[in-house]
């Protein structure tokens, strides 16, 4: 078996998470409901306009934004998954020993090659395009 699984954990160990989840939701709901009940409500057309420093807002706010953000997001997805791959390896680092380390160096070399490529390709040059 490749992954070391500690033996003394049970699925039921995760149950308290539900407790905390309920607490968190309860708190948030409480806050929202109370502020809803307590706060005044005075609507007007002008007030409901988007706040853009007093300048009249033009066009739809859901406009396309710089594609750099998408690129960042996409790169994150890729690199993050690669990082996830490293977690089991890191946990079992000692067990895997030298071979494991060499394999990870290869993995990281490939990852960094891609990384270098991406950087050189100008993902972070925000002032272009």
């Amino acid at each position: 078996m490749l992954l070391a699984v500690p033996t003394n954990y049970q699925p039921s160990d995760f149950l308290p998470i539900i407790v905390q989840f309920v607490l968190a939701i309860a708190f948030v709901a409480f806050a929202m409901v109370v502020s809803h009940l307590v706060g005044p409500r005075r609507k007007s057309v002008v007030k409901d306009e988007a706040f853009e420093c007093g300048i009249e807002s033009v066009g739809n706010a859901r406009t396309p934004i710089s594609v750099k953000y998408f690129l960042t997001a996409i790169l994150f997805v890729l690199f993050d998954v690669e990082v996830i791959f490293m977690y089991p390896w890191a946990v079992n680092f000692r067990a895997l020993g030298q071979t494991g380390f060499i394999e990870m160096i290869v993995f990281l070399a490939l990852l960094m090659a891609g990384f270098t490529y991406v950087i050189k390709k100008g993902v972070l040059r925000w002032n272009e395009a």
């Binding site: 490939l110 090659a113 891609g114 270098t116 490529y117 050189k120």
Partner: peptide
Amino acid sequence: LSVLGLGNLFLGFL
């Protein structure tokens, strides 16, 4: 193929 593909990628910076 993998290595050469990677190398080729960097050739693109020429």
